[in-house]
Design a protein around this nucleic acid. Structure first.
Length: 475
RNA sequence: GGCGCAUUAGUCUAGUUGGCCUAGGACGCCGCCCUCUCAAGGCGGAGAUCGCGGGUUCAAAUCCCGCAUGCGCUACCA
């Protein structure tokens, strides 16, 4: 049984890079009928908050990445919040301490920092120097008497650490480059490296899929699994998400949170589609894929190991494709919150349909909806269409046509426009010469949705009114 | 400094066992078509001496060695 996990820290909004990790885990669980565990890594009490946890869960759900076990729904291996697993960590730490695989360290932060700087200055590796490694019981008591509270360090055994990475192959690290790392802080709480291993072990995680920034940490983790007597899971370290400058994507690259894209009107399916396309390419070459299609053809072993640069323009293209692939009524539903002033309009669905090919994100909706509001005062480019004999005749004719028929739906409007065009075309006029004056007279702009949409949404009466006004302005 | 990972066009990638690669696809860019406009869509084009230097081989993007560059880790952050 494949068990994967996504383990975010609730210290900020869900990051795009984390979302990609969550996606890969989800895809593996989905594709192999495995289970996905959501674990909240909130051991850093100062930086973690329940609000952030909520927002991360919400964004994950929005993306469509559901989990089978987690802090909100529980599960066989609960609790799923590290802050609630203190007893489990203490028990495991106690075991290592008893077996001599860990030892108390009384060094203060300042002492540690000082010796680290010294090591650096002397060209030595800035790893823990083993100061408290061989303290006698007597020495320990002395330090306790000074009021020092010990942290716990793992006694790193000599030799090489080997493990298999599903993407990078065989990995080997010499333990000499790893200092005795901390497993428990001096306040008794578990450190990252320790809590991760204890959780992955006790939650029976089979595949650890995470970012490459953890690759060197994994050596520590393997050591811990072995010391604790647990089977080592399979690992896959995916490449990092980069900003356009090639550095790991971070705040200074602008919008990096899933939330930013959600609020800008990107579709969750487009975002997951794009994230999957970074470091993976579909076998059939079809790139526009929904989440379920992704799950079907995705193969974690085909991931690319090189870092991927986030490209907003391709995301935009995909978002447009997803918008246009979506059934209109679904799109209308999703669009409503982005165009609050318009969504109540009885012809709102028609309005959406009319700008379907223009919008890249739902957030652009208000901008494109403007044509349906008050007519603009024709600008420099638009105004000339309202001058001259041709325009006068076209608009006059359009007004007459309009008053003689009732515009009830898009079809009526199409016929109206078609016959108007037909009539003047026969007199040797160019299509734009006949329709641009109408467009400008109705909206004041030279750009916008196809004329029949404008006529339908505005309605016959309003159109007549606007044509009259334009005509009046020409005399 | 040490250790690790990566390296195909501006970007994402295909290329798994060396010859079907005169390096394929996608975004972006340019052009044409369609079209009342903007788009969308269709068609076409430019863009990569496969990071560099050696080797192995009849033959290398693909194998070997070295170098360079980028990124990551080296916290009582995760």
């Amino acid at each position: 049984m494949i068990r994967v996990r996504f383990a975010p820290s609730p210290t900020g909004y869900l990051h795009l890079g984390s979302a990609r990790t969550a996606l890969f885990n989800w895809l593996v669980a989905r594709g192999e009928s495995g289970r996905m565990v959501l674990r909240v890594e909130d051991t850093d009490r100062r930086r973690s908050s329940r609000d952030m946890e909520d927002s991360i869960l919400e964004d994950l759900r929005w993306l469509g990445l559901e989990w089978d076990e987690g802090p909100d729904i529980g599960g066989e291996y609960a609790p799923y919040r590290q802050s609630e697993r203190g007893d489990i960590y203490r028990e495991h730490a106690g075991r290592l301490l008893e077996e001599g695989k860990a030892y108390p360290c009384y060094c203060t932060l300042e002492e540690l920092e000082e010796r680290k700087q010294k090591a650096l200055a002397e060209g030595r590796a800035p790893i823990y120097d083993g100061n408290c490694r061989e303290l006698t019981a007597q020495e320990r008591m002395e330090r306790e008497a000074e009021g020092r509270r010990p942290a716990l360090r793992f006694r790193v055994p000599e030799g090489d650490i080997e493990f298999e990475d599903l993407l990078h192959g065989k990995m080997r690290f010499s333990s000499s480059v790893i200092g005795d790392f901390l497993i428990t802080r001096n306040d008794g709480s578990a450190g990252f490296n320790f809590s991760v291993v204890v959780d992955d072990a006790t939650m029976k995680i089979s595949h650890v899929i995470r970012g490459e920034d953890h690759l060197t940490n994994t050596a520590r983790h393997v050591l811990l699994f072995q010391a604790l007597g647990y089977p080592v899971p399979l690992y896959l370290h995916q490449s990092l998400l980069m900003g356009s400058d090639g550095a790991k994507m971070s705040k200074r690259h602008g919008a990096t949170a899933v939330r930013n894209y959600r609020e800008a009107g990107y579709l969750p399916g487009a975002l997951t589609n794009y994230l999957a396309l970074l470091s993976w390419s579909p076998p059939e070459g079809r790139e526009v894929l929904g989440l379920d299609e992704l799950a079907r053809s995705f193969d974690i072993r085909q991931l690319s190991a090189s870092p991927a640069v986030f490209d907003r323009e391709k995301l935009d293209w995909l978002n447009g494709r997803h918008i246009r692939n979506m059934p209109l009524d679904t799109l209308v539903e999703k669009a409503a919150p982005f165009a609050p002033g318009w969504s109540g309009h009885p012809l709102f669905p028609l309005m959406i349909e009319s700008v379907l090919d223009n919008i890249v994100t739902l957030g652009e909706l208000p901008f494109y909806m403007e044509v349906y509001g008050e007519p603009a005062k024709p600008g420099e480019k638009a105004a000339p269409w309202l001058r001259g004999d041709t325009a006068l005749r076209v608009l006059g004719r359009a007004l007459r046509d309009l008053s003689s028929i009732e515009i009830e739906d898009l079809e009526d409007a199409r016929e109206l426009i078609a016959s108007l065009k037909q009539e003047f075309l026969e007199k040797g006029m160019k299509p734009r010469e006949v329709l641009m004056p109408v467009r400008v007279a109705l909206t004041g702009r030279e750009r916008g949705p196809a004329l029949p949409y404008i006529v339908t949404v505005l309605g016959g009466t309003e159109c007549e009114e606007r044509l009259r006004r334009a005509l009046a302005g020409m005399e």
